[in-house]
Amino acid sequence: MSSMTADSEMIASVVGGVRERFLERLGDRCLEIETLMLAIDEQGLQQRLIDEIAGRAHKTAGVAPTLGFEDLGKVALDVEGRLSKPLDAGGWADCRQRIETLLDEMELALDTAL
């Protein structure tokens, strides 16, 4: 076996393992974000809730493209960027829509993988 083949197999094995774990967490992450959005709807725009959603978007954006989910990575990056700026009620409405898109992308990634 050439060293290049061995390298490729090693990479595929590492990426495969991380991808599996990432997808396992993605389902939970989806539900967590939905819960956080409901909390904002009920309790109003609280920074700690926004930070929680931004943190989940951040983690998704950091690895999704490397695992083959480029669109998911882009949307997650966009959501994190929007949430890192000060938000008013109008800004939240736009942001909420984008988070819905992120949830759609997460579900699509899960559907594709399963």
Binding site: V15, G17, V18, R21, K59, V63, T66
Partner: peptide, 10 residues
């Protein structure tokens, strides 16, 4: 993020 660390290490 342990996922990121694993990929980064590789």
């Amino acid at each position: 993020d342990p996922d990121f660390l694993t990929l980064f290490e590789s």
